[in-house]
Amino acid sequence: MNTENPWIATPLTADLFRGAIELERTDHGLLPHRLPARARAQHNDGQLAMAEAQPSGVRLAFRTRATAVELDTLPTKRVYAGTPPRPDGVYDLLVDGRLARQGTVPGGHLVTIDMATGSATTVPGSPGTLRFTGLPDSAKNIEIWLPHDETTELVALRTDAPLEPAPAAGRPVWLHHGSSISHGSDAASPSATWPAHAARIGRAELINLGLSGSALLDPFTARTLRDTPADVISVKIGINLVNTDVMRLRAFTSAVHGFLDTIRDGHPGAPLLVVSPILCPIHEDTPGPTAFDLDALATGALRFRATGEPTERAVGKLTLNVVREELSRLVGERAVDDPQLHYLDGRDLYGEPDVAELPLPDDLHPDAATHRLIGERFAARVFSPTGPFRPART
């Protein structure tokens, strides 16, 4: 820290945030949300409540000459009974778009989840401090990406030089919705989730509505997408519908139409991309629901298994191949009257040729290297000069 200047405290205000849908004032500070209060009031799902409050894609963005930055936060960490402790959530600090520092905040609230019963217990904790020092002594844009998998209340921000909100980058806003894979499960850090990586390559401003376990075609999610300003939009549909076994093919078809209709009400002419699931061998032709592999859990490993039967496809149960076939057909028919509606087969992002080299560690989620691969492939196909998002970039 510059010893000639004391720490300067800057109030945490909305103009310092990017990627959040709403900021809630709490007893400690600000809690970023990725669904608005109206949507949060329309469900009683603890999984969704946890997912939308985890700030995947949310970052502070400001311009400063500061060489040192402090951020006080109150994290909520979670552990799963019977498995090794999860590492603390990672904060990424980017200087002029490049990763420069990483850090964690110890302590905070601790939630212990019993996967066998679904119960959870919480032990309250206290805020901690994240400190970055030795930054370049020059005017620069700083982004601090909050942990994508750890609920984070922001308490205070201090620097050793004045700061101001980062100027608008003039880039298209990319609004994306998907499952835990889009949320960032098993990614190395918040700026390394596949959507964050793709956005960086495609030079887009990301709003990530990847909601772990909760990409279920909920009407309140569609309305959130409808009401959020964006230049380009993508929705990744399928895996959560299969692994929750929440609907049959008849309901799926009309639900997708309704979801897309609602988005179009707010974004009638924006490029809109429907992405089907990446390859997941346990569910390609076997319906859900998905369950924890209790034998693996007994050894301290976290793995998943499909509990349906392939023959149940005949009675309308969803598999990933069923979902892909129906999405491809449905989007193709709608695109006749909606030329800005596009389809991408998720197996183009991660498919059969990738399984041997990059298997899914828990049989459901990609690892850090695969997040990078998916992000690169998405950017190459979607943000390319011939891709569906190119007109907005131009």
Rank of each mutant, 00 (worst) to 15 (best):
W145S: 03
W145M: 02
G108C: 06
D265T: 15
P391R: 09
L260I: 14
L216E: 11
T121M: 07
P55K: 01
L206Y: 04
G108Y: 07
E284C: 02
G308N: 00
Y91V: 09
D245E: 12
R250N: 13
R334G: 00
L130I: 12
L48M: 09
R86L: 15
D27H: 11
V382L: 08
P195H: 10
A39V: 04
D218L: 15
E312G: 02
R334C: 06
Y350A: 02
L30Q: 14
W194N: 09
G118E: 00
Q102E: 12
G118M: 08
G213N: 04
V58D: 04
T133I: 10
P385K: 09
R158Y: 12
L211F: 15
F304L: 14
A251H: 11
E352G: 11
A230M: 05
L163H: 03
R313V: 14
R98G: 01
R63D: 13
L216Y: 09
A41H: 08
K77Q: 15
T152I: 05
R393F: 06
I201F: 08
L30V: 13
T386F: 11
A188I: 02
L206H: 01
D27C: 03
G184L: 08
D337Y: 01
H342Y: 14
P361F: 04
D337S: 13
T122L: 14
V382P: 01
A187K: 02
D72S: 12
V173N: 06
A68S: 15
L71M: 03
R59W: 01
T13P: 11
D293Y: 04
N44L: 13
A14L: 04
E376G: 04
V232C: 08
A204H: 06
L146H: 02
P36L: 08
A37V: 05
N44F: 11
H257L: 11
W174I: 07
D337T: 12
R264P: 04
P165R: 03
E4V: 06
A168P: 11
G258L: 10
A270K: 06
D149Q: 13
V235Y: 01
P281D: 07
S234Q: 02
V232W: 01
I144V: 08
T121D: 14
L48R: 00
L163N: 08
A49R: 10
L279K: 05
R226F: 00
E70I: 01
S185M: 12
F17Q: 02
P106R: 11
T394F: 00
A204C: 13
R303N: 13
D45M: 03
R329K: 13
T394S: 03
L327Q: 07
S182C: 15
Q42L: 12
D149F: 10
A81D: 09
G269T: 14
E70K: 14
A196M: 09
T290M: 15
S179T: 14
N141S: 12
